[in-house]
């Protein structure tokens, strides 16, 4: 701000500025750089820029050399990064230097040697002038007439038809987003009498295998990893088997659906479907690692914290006449996250 704009100065100038306080001040006068007036400085800048570009070239060559020289498994200690693969470090550093030197050279070039005179680009209306417009319209009318578009209506109409139909093939491909899940979200592989398989040993679980305070992950009998729909099925049927002391179970339905305190809950969080299994055996809380939804396994797996909207579905289990744990049917409600039609 120049001093003449201060109020005390303005009065002294007899109110001259007050007439048009918003006058365009125009561009400030161009200040030359040393490189503009001193050819030696310009030469020096040129050498600096060239040096940076040369550094980049050397770094790229060093990158290629590093790739050839360093064996993959060699680990070195470099402060402050710690132990690191020599190859990774060399490749990263040389590529970093090569890119940075190009950037630094370009910036230095632009700042010291390229013209820094500020110019104003005038704005013009974007509308074409009348002659051009008339010419374009005339050309179009002539083209339309020469192509006989207006005369041969059959060609015109079929062309419009073809152009209108072509996008339909793109719309048709959207069908691949389906088919709709129908009732797949409501059912899992579990059914009455299905054995409960320990995921670690691939053997059916017996009640005596499951100790109080233990945690076991289980899958339905017959589900093999080699099946093509394995992921789809396990994503719904994955089970978490926990044994509580029966007197610790506060929820009556949970106690009824358990077998001697062994409870089977869906492993899929009802918020967005993360596998949930951070089980604390003293508090009986299960924590979801994604968004910290917490469920109380001793009270019907109700939500006690976090964004989940439903309690974890419980699988009704019992023991069959051969002494193995079995499901007494599918989950009563859909497992996993909520969806519109879930209700």
């Amino acid at each position: 701000m120049s001093e003449s704009t201060l109020p005390s100065e303005r009065e002294a100038h007899g109110g001259e500025l007050a007439e048009n306080p918003f006058a365009d001040p125009g561009l400030p006068p161009h200040e030359p750089r040393r490189q503009d007036i001193d050819e030696k400085a310009a030469k020096s800048s040129e050498r600096t820029v060239a040096l940076l570009f040369t550094v980049s070239m050397l770094a790229t060559i060093a990158f290629i050399a590093s790739y050839v020289i360093f064996p993959v498994g060699k680990v070195v200690f470099i402060w402050p990064i710690g132990h690191i693969s020599a190859l990774n470090f060399a490749l990263g550093m040389t590529l970093g230097v090569a890119l940075f030197a190009i950037g630094a050279g370009a910036v230095h070039w632009a700042r010291t040697l390229m013209s820094d005179v500020e110019t104003a680009a005038e704005r013009h209306p974007i509308e074409a002038d009348p002659e051009t417009k008339a010419q374009v319209l005339a050309d179009f009318a002539q083209g339309a007439q020469e192509s006989q578009l207006g005369r041969r209506k059959l060609i015109r109409n079929t062309m419009f038809g073809a152009l209108a139909l072509v996008p339909l093939s793109g719309v048709m491909l959207l069908r691949d987003l389906g088919p709709l899940p129908e009732d797949k979200l409501r059912h899992t592989l579990w059914s009455k009498g299905m054995l409960i398989i320990n995921q670690n040993t691939n053997q059916p679980l017996r009640p005596e295998d499951v100790a109080v305070g233990s945690l076991t992950f289980a899958v339905p009998d017959g589900l093999e990893e080699t099946q093509s729909d394995y992921q789809e099925q396990i994503a719904k049927a994955a089970l978490m088997i926990v044994r509580l002391a029966p007197e610790d179970i506060k929820d009556k339905r949970e106690r009824d659906w358990a077998h001697q305190g062994i409870v089977a809950f869906s492993k899929i969080c009802t918020h967005v479907g993360c596998p949930i299994s951070l089980y604390e055996q003293q508090t009986h809380h299960v924590l979801c690692p994604c968004h910290q939804s917490t469920f109380d396994l001793s009270d019907g797996a109700r939500v006690i914290f976090g964004p989940a909207g439903h309690a974890l579905p419980q699988l009704r289990i019992s023991v069959n006449n051969q002494g193995y744990l079995e499901a007494l049917g599918d989950f009563e409600e859909p497992v996993g996250p909520s969806f519109w039609e879930r209700g």
Partner: peptide, 18 residues
């Protein structure tokens, strides 16, 4: 043994070999 709040993984569900 499942110390403190960690659940236990007894040999019956996670074998010694596991």
């Amino acid at each position: 043994t499942g110390p403190q709040n960690m659940p236990s993984f007894p040999d019956s569900t996670l074998t010694k070999e596991n």
